[in-house]
Write a protein that binds this DNA or RNA. Structure first.
Lengths: 203, 203
DNA sequence: CGCTAATCTAGAACAAGTTTCAGACCGGAT
DNA sequence: ATCCGGTCTGAAACTTGTTCTAGATTAGCG
């Protein structure tokens, strides 16, 4: 089980799977230049070689599309990050390391990051399931880097707060209201919560 | 100096000030039912008794309008909160108390909160100055509740992270992905950072 | 193969944010 | 009081997300 898991609605045919993939590719491509506003549904449809109506059948809104794009990219990143274990003595340092690595990946594609993160935080209730999936993947990445199999409720709270900070810090960076250094500080600051919530022992 | 301070662009005439106020009132009114999508520029203009073009002269986009609405509401809230001092022994408890009080205010007007917070996190670079103003007011509220006149850089970092958590937790609540209890936990968790960054002394 | 339901395409149509424009109006300088 | 530049109005136009429709294609099945 390689961390996939679709809601297993109707199983897609090969051609459909290919269409879906073309759409996601076009979405990421367009987002890569131009960011959120450059992802125009008509253009996505054309670039994916698909009719507008079909695009909407696969992704019921632009937000759905971009959140799905984020799922896709996150999955990639999870794989990439997993290859090299995070550096750092304690859990806090390792989480900070992973998040900074992820942040550097975002810096390489700021427009893409913009489109995905803006969509994520703008999503309303109709996109909750998909956003939740993104959240689960993010949680998995963080817990992974902590090397925890059975986190305590307290630690899970800390992880939730770390995710909040991560998203919000990204937003402030993307909108030019915080520097890269600022984001780094914020991440390191919030990671201290892990120490607070991870009491004694631990070599 | 009661925490006002406009960028002092051209000073507005009385009638203009009145228009601006009517617009903000209409915006809050419409947001109060229906949330973000219920704030339609044509309707705001009509409700404010102003031409569409004029609305756009005062607020260059729907996002600008809603962020300005948030500034307005926050200012109110700052005043209200200031009246009764926050309860709690240490700074962390007081901050958590203030934020929970603010959160309860949001619960009374969830649609309005939705419109304002969604606009805030969706805002792009063109709205940075206005969003920054909101951020400054929020910071002021938090520092106020801590009773700090000269916060250390470390404490400021903690406050930044608290603001990140505050916004992001609100978002997850508004989009139905987190319960009220969850938000409470998140706030209390992040407020622990204040203890961590406020070393010895302090009765 | 031939049928049927589901899916896909092309394109029009609609909704709401934003822009534009001609003319009416307002406030300050002469 | 008159004139001028900036402001406001009303209305149309434009853009992009979303919906709808009629007809072509496809997938699965007897």
């Amino acid at each position: 089980m390689t961390a996939e898991a679709k809601p297993a609605s109707p199983p897609l045919t090969e051609r459909q799977e290919a269409r879906r993939r073309r759409i996601l590719h076009a979405s990421a491509q367009l987002a890569g230049r131009g960011g959120f506003e450059a992802v125009q549904m008509r253009e996505v449809a054309e670039a994916a070689g698909v009719a507008l109506g079909t695009l909407y059948r696969y992704f019921p809104s632009k937000i759905h599309l971009l959140v799905a794009t984020m799922q896709d990219q996150l999955q990639h990143m999870h794989g990439t990050l997993r290859k090299r274990p995070p550096a750092g003595d304690d859990a806090a340092a390792r989480v900070a390391d992973i998040l900074m690595r992820a942040f550097r990946a975002m810096q390489r594609e700021p427009h893409l990051a913009d489109a995905m993160v803006r969509a994520l935080t703008f999503a309303d209730r109709s996109v909750s399931p998909e956003v939740d999936t993104v959240s689960r993947i993010t949680t998995a990445i963080i817990l992974d880097s902590m090397g925890l199999r059975h986190p305590t409720p307290e630690q899970l709270s800390a992880v939730r707060v770390i995710e909040h900070t991560w998203h919000s810090a990204l937003i402030t960076w993307l909108s030019g209201r915080a520097s890269i250094a600022q984001v780094k500080t914020d991440i390191e600051t919030v990671c201290r919560l892990i120490d607070v919530t991870t009491p004694p022992d631990a070599p």
